[in-house]
Write a protein that binds this DNA or RNA. Structure first.
Lengths: 178, 178
DNA sequence: GTTCCCATGTAACCCGTTACATGATTTT
DNA sequence: AAAATCATGTAACGGGTTACATGGGAAC
């Protein structure tokens, strides 16, 4: 275990804090519906992080026997975990944004591409952006009527605005290309 | 060496193709000025990739003795490398976009943040976006007068439009928050 | 005399992904 | 009979980062 936990640890800690008593399975589903758009955490990684949080004493897990369903481990944040989470939130971040776009990589080298491949490249990107706009708009709309979900809704809106701007960029590009 | 090369291999291959005869050092600088915004490649990683491209026979490196400056290795794409690069460009991509925003992660959990920390979080983000807009606008402007740099210029513009949209989002957020 | 540029690497680390594994219960 | 849901993991891999290393020439 590294001395300095990765940001993902705080992400999972935050999830446990947000949904006390949740199981790994439930946290994974929550992550998939929320964090996934700006901080993806695969199921396997999430289980590993939970284990580490428990080792550090930031969350406590208790075995819960269930009748029909398989047994589950239920997690709650500890007092120390809450302190650590709060300290992380107050501390200014590094502002790191990692962004890797396969589309832009191909587009950057597209000079020697055939016209057909170029058209497909742009069309695929447009489709993907369109899907994003629809998905995230739906999320934002749903969250509009959920109390206490303001930042979640705004985070979704961040994705919507980003995708919309890129659709606009695509229009600019297609107007310019032959 | 894995059977299937990572996208970064093609990125470096593309760079060698774009700038024949360049050294690792030069390629690293080129990557820093161009790819870095949407496909960052650290210097160390780039040197490793070049070596692998050479092992695969996609680029050929020749030692160049220099007088005043240290010796350098100059790289050129091979016929097979050109075929592979072209095939990669024609082949439809997976459309993968990896995006991880430390800002959004903190923002998502900002419910329990102090007002001060919240203000700082937003201010930092605004500053970073502002810097991006200025940097990339300058790049795009410069490339406007460079022949054959259309896609490079448009790639920069993609970043500008994205950052502008996020600044607009910040306005929305600040209008809504107390 | 310190700092910047050229130039190329090695070593260690670890975060995150993918594939594999198991098994009961409920729904279609 | 098949597929989805609940539930939790292990193992292997590798892409990418960071720190460390060296050394000459030029510029300030």
């Amino acid at each position: 275990m590294p001395v300095d936990p990765p940001e993902t640890s705080y992400a999972v800690l935050g999830l446990v804090d947000k949904k006390p008593g949740a199981s790994g399975h439930e946290l994974a589903r929550l992550a998939e519906r929320s964090l996934a758009y700006f901080w993806p955490i695969s199921r396997t990684l999430l289980y590993r992080e939970i284990r580490r949080l428990e080792e550090r004493g930031w969350v406590r897990g208790t075995e819960v026997r269930q009748e029909r369903l398989p047994d589950r481990r239920s997690y709650t944040i500890t007092a120390e975990g809450a302190r650590v989470l709060s300290a992380w939130l107050e501390r200014p971040g590094t502002g790191s944004n990692q962004f890797r776009s396969e589309f832009l990589l191909r587009f950057f080298f597209s000079a020697s591409m055939s016209g057909e491949a170029m058209k497909e490249l742009l069309a695929d990107y447009r489709r993907a952006l369109h899907t994003t706009v629809e998905e995230l708009s739906a999320v934002a709309d749903r969250l509009a009527s959920v109390p206490g979900a303001r930042t979640s809704r705004l985070a979704a809106l961040h994705g919507v605005r980003t995708a919309q701007a890129r659709l606009g960029w695509l229009d600019e590009v297609e107007a310019e290309l032959p």
